[in-house]
Each structure stands twice: as C-alpha cells, then as structure tokens.
Design a protein around this nucleic acid. Structure first.
Lengths: 335, 335
DNA sequence: AAGTATCTATAAAAGGTTTTATAAAGTGAT
DNA sequence: ATCACTTTATAAAACCTTTTATAGATACTT
C-alpha cells in the first residue's frame, strides 16, 4: 500500500534501523550510506508515519484546544496566538468547539486524551465544576483560559481586570462624567473576571465623592444584550452621561440601539467598551475600550504548556499580561 | 506508566483480545465477562490509546484543515461548518494557518499527510500552482475551497458568483441607479471568482441600455482597501449613485471613509457588499449584501470528504450552493 | 454416544516506527 | 599479528492496539 521505512531499507540495501538513524540523525551513519538512503527516500517519496512514530516515542506533537466558538473574534485571536507559537515548536493543534455545551468540555478532554495530545488549553465562559475532576485525573499540562480562574488550582493567563476597569472608569470621570453606568454579566464567583471588573469600577467611583456609579446586569455579553440594556437604560436612567460596557459587544449593541433611536455617540452620551474586538476600531464611532492582548494570552498559554513538556520551570500559575486603554471616539469630554 | 489494555486484561483475568472485543463490540462476549471487563475499565480509568488504534486500523479520524487565517470571519464560519459535521462522524480537525504564505500550504499538506489525516480541506486565497503537484501525489480526499476553482481538477464548493453579482446589480438598477461602480480585486484566471462577479455585473449592465457601469480594482479585499478606493472614487467619480463592493470588507471600508467625510449612506450614495460578514447586519447602516452560505460550504466540503472515505459516490466535483440577496439599509431607491 | 455446529475465548501476528543490545568491521598501538 | 578500541550497521524488542486463525467448551442432531 503506502511506502514505509521497510521499502526504503530494502531498496537502499540497508536495515530499517539505519534508515531511521538517517531520518532522525540519531546515530552516526557513514556518508555514502546516508546519501544512498536519502536518495531512495526522495525517489520513492517516503514520508514517515507520524502515528507509528508517536506510538513509540510517546510524543504526538499535538495540543488540544477546546473553545466555545471559533467564530468569536476574541477566541479566534487567542487560537491564533496558540497556533503560531505552537508551530514554532512543531506542535499542531487539534480544535474542538463546544458551542457552550458544558458536557462537551469534559467529553472533548477525554477524546483529546485518547488521541494522545500532549497538552490541553480550554477556553471557556463557564464555571464548570465537572472540569475539576477530569483535570485532576489528567497527566498532561492543562491551561484554563476562562472568565473564571483559580490560580491555585489551574494554570491561567489574564489581565488585571480590576485595575483595567478602574482605569477606564477613572478616565470617564476625568472626562467630566459624574453619572456613570457599568454593564456586564452577573457573577459572584470569587475568581470571576466580571466580579473583578465591577470591583474596579466601584473602586474608582468611590475615590471621587461626587460621582455616582450604577451597575446594570445583562444575561449575556452579546450584541443583542447591549441593544436591550440600552433600551432599558434610556427609559429609566435618562441622566446617565456615560455607559461603560464590560464587553465591546455590549457597547456595539448599545450604540446600535441608540443610533436607531437618533441618540448620537459621543455627542449625546459616551459609551466605552472592553476587549477591543477587531471591529471596535472600524465601527463608527470608533470604540474607546480596554485592549485585552488576546493573541498574547494564547501565545503565553501554549508557551506554558510547552515549558512543562520540556520540564522547564513554570514560575507562577497565574500570569497577568499588560492591557491598554484605547482612547478613541466613542467617549467625549463633558462640559 | 499509563494504563493500557494489558492492565485491564490482567486485572479482569481475560485476554487482551477479549477486552478489545468488549470495547469495540466487534465479537460476542458473554455477559458476565463483559460486565467484569467493563467494571475494571471503569475502575482503573482505562482510555484506549487512539494512536495505537490508528496504527492498526489505518484510520486516524483526523481531517486536516488549512486556512489562511482563522481570524477571518468568512473562514471561521467555514471551519465551523467543517468541524460541526466532522464531529457528527467522529472526525476531529487538525488546524493549520498559513497567513498567506504560499509555501506553507504545501508544507502543511505534507505535515498533515505524515500525521495520517484521512482528508484535507484547503481554504486559500491564492492560485498556488505548486498545489497541483502535491495533490496529484496525494492518496486521500482533498477539497479546495478557494477564490479560484477548477472543477475538473479539484473538488470544490461555491455559489454561482456570476449570477449573484448579476442579481445584485439588477437590484441596484431596479432601485433607479444608472451610474453604478463595482469594486473588487483584479484577476484574470479563468476560474477566478472575482472574474465571475465582474461578468455578472457587466451582464446586468448590458441588459439595460441606459445604465452605465464602471469597474474599479483594489489590490486586496480588506477594509483598508475599501477606505482607500472610496476616497479615490469620491474625487474622480462624483456622479456615481451606487457602489457595489465585491466584498463586505470593501463596503465597510468605503462606508467608513464616507462617514468620516460626512457623506451619509444610503441618503447620499448607496453601497452594497458581498459575503455577509457577521458585522454586516450590525454595522450601521445595515449592509445590503449577498449572503454566501459559508457554514454550509464548510459542511458540504467535509461531507464530500467523508463520502469519499466511505466509498460513497460523489456526484460532481463542483457543487454550487444557493445564495441570498439580503436587502438591508445601505441601498436606497433613487428618485 | 458420537459427530457436528455454535459460541466464547485465546494466542499470535500485524501495523510502522524507535531504540537497545549486539555483532561486524575498521583503526591504531604494541 | 594480536589486542583493544572505536565506528558503523543490524536484529530484535517494544510501543498499544486490532484481527485472524485456532482451540476449547457447550449445545444440538441423529
């Protein structure tokens, strides 16, 4: 059927092991034998079977990546980071999407394990308790990239969300806003990112006695939720001068609603986002937002895995990467 | 080290083959033996090694997918389709991104082959001649999803671009526009999608003696190119009443330029797109565009591969899927 | 009771590679 | 020439499964 190392050996008139040594440069081979083997390989187009190789070396050069949805721009950017640095170390990625199904997370971890991946990165929005058990029984490096994080339990990489939200709020206050809304999803988990954002928001508000801050909750951080909450807010809270959205999608949804109702940004009200989606700079008005370094998050995550595979020291479980406050057009000085 | 089928066999007091038969239901096993084996498997947490299994069955249940950039929404949508139907047949996907590097395409095909993928889907923007040779030597199903397509040589799936562009142009004409621009990338390959679009545009224009159509070329179908071409057009071709962009990105770029220069859509000029990016319906004004069924394209592509793997008949190499003309807000009746 | 058919279970081979232990050949020193 | 040593090549085991061919046990016929 397909051409194997045996065929090469036979045609070149050497043993299988010699061919293997030529391919892998694992032991010295005389230059004329090497040359002959290489010629045969080239001639008959031999390609080593990585499956057989994996079986004996116990290295698959595969990293499993489980995501909720590759269509999500944040996630796509992380996967990009993962893949690009993975490739630098010859790792390929095996992609699984859960589309929010929590059971699928556990299922895919098991499938990936069977496929002998050398490490797993899970990008999730859930706080899935079942993960704990499965990961406990896992004997390969695992990095958890999610809204929740537990630095004691898992390797993870994020930004300092408390501080980022604090900075954005402070920026709005400095712009002269004194009735500011903050909207995000509700969650009280200790290590939940949204909770940190709220803490940052409140911290900034508290530092200025004169400023009033109000938190609004949505069920999901999608564009449609932004649209809906803007509708609600514009009825009940007419005196807000700025709305800080805990996600660019919320901001875009909110701006869309307001645009449809002839409320113009930033003239009539300032809106800021969080995340820096690719569209954030294309959307008009351009979105003032917090840039989370998603590419880097992915890159660092896989680097963490590869380090563990190479038995290098991995300093801390929880890495915090720098963020940026991008001042664009959707927030205005209030006068 | 890790627990194998041998361990299960020893503990359960049966032979390896019996365990295998229990796992795969490949041959009858008495119910008490089966029960005992299952208990042991559960107890010691045995997970079959798919690598070893692949080696003997010669099935990896892996499909290689090579893309230019997973961050591109069109591509993400196709990959979604690929993955979701792949999973229905227990196939996992191995993702490789080229970021436009043509050499990487050939390189990854070879890597994937070595990893024993059972099929490959290549999503590319290039017309890479080297692919021909590599694919000729490939003994696994291959589907080429690209801007170019050659139905004789490759399996591919697209929409009828000539007809789609024709329909959109006709729609604009019916709206009363009589000086219409069409912008896309230049390419004269026989099977180039852009060429088909231009043909469709010209066909519609030709059917109405009174309408004038003009084609503009950009180097790339990115947002920035749309921005630039809009600037150019608004200087040189002030009398255009509608611009049909051969890609949503171009349309969004154009609208952004015009918005920045106080030209409002669709009041001052109508703009239509092509593709239906996720943002197309969120962007304000909502984009009138051609909806290409990217999810389905991906789904059909992998279905084609799986059919071949199952030795089912695959009717035609080139499948054309239906498209939709989405009439939204960016195009107006001209009076 | 003997022979045949039907179930179950097993041992061993196979899949394509790497690697360990071993043999053969070559080199240099005495 | 012989011995010890180095260099290069090989055979065989190992990795973890599935599967084929075979054996043993049980049930069914006559």
């Amino acid at each position: 059927m397909s051409v194997t190392i045996k065929d090469v050996a036979k045609i070149a008139g050497v043993s299988i092991s010699t061919v293997s040594r030529v391919i892998n440069n694992s032991k010295p081979v005389s230059s004329d034998v090497r040359k002959r083997v290489l010629e045969v390989i080239d001639e008959i187009g031999y390609k080593p079977n990585e499956v057989a190789r994996s079986l004996v070396t116990k290295k698959s050069f595969l990293i499993g990546v489980i995501v909720t949805d590759i269509g999500n721009s944040y996630i796509a950017e992380m996967v990009r980071g993962i893949e690009e640095v993975g490739k630098m170390y010859n790792y390929d990625i095996l992609l699984c999407s859960t589309y929010g199904d929590e059971n699928a997370e556990v299922k895919y971890i098991n499938i990936l394990k069977r496929k002998q991946v050398e490490g797993i990165i899970l990008i999730s929005d859930n706080d899935n308790k079942n993960i704990d058990d499965v990961v406990d029984g896992l004997d390969i490096p695992f990095v958890y990239l999610n809204r929740y994080f537990n630095p004691d339990r898992y390797h993870t990489v994020t930004i300092d969300h408390l501080y980022a939200a604090y900075e954005m709020t402070k920026y709005l206050i400095d712009l002269g806003h004194n009735k500011i809304g903050f909207v995000t999803t509700k969650d009280d988990q200790d290590y939940c990112i949204e909770k940190k954002k709220i803490e940052g928001f409140k911290k900034a508000i508290a530092e200025y006695g004169t400023v009033e801050g109000k938190v609004f909750f949505v069920n999901n951080r999608k564009i449609s939720n932004g649209y809906e909450i803007a509708k609600k807010i514009s009825y009940s809270e007419k005196d807000l001068t700025a709305i800080f959205c805990g996600d660019d999608n919320l901001a875009i949804g909110a701006i869309s609603y307001l645009y449809d109702n002839r409320v113009y940004i930033p003239m009539d009200i300032s809106i800021s986002g969080y995340g820096d989606l690719p569209i954030a700079s294309i959307f008009r008005p351009r979105l003032t937002t917090i840039k989370e370094p998603f590419y880097d998050i992915g890159a660092v995550a896989i680097r963490k895995i590869i380090k563990q595979l190479n038995k290098e020291k991995v300093e801390n479980n929880h890495i915090k990467l720098p963020f940026k406050l991008l001042k664009r057009d959707s927030c205005n000085k209030l006068d």
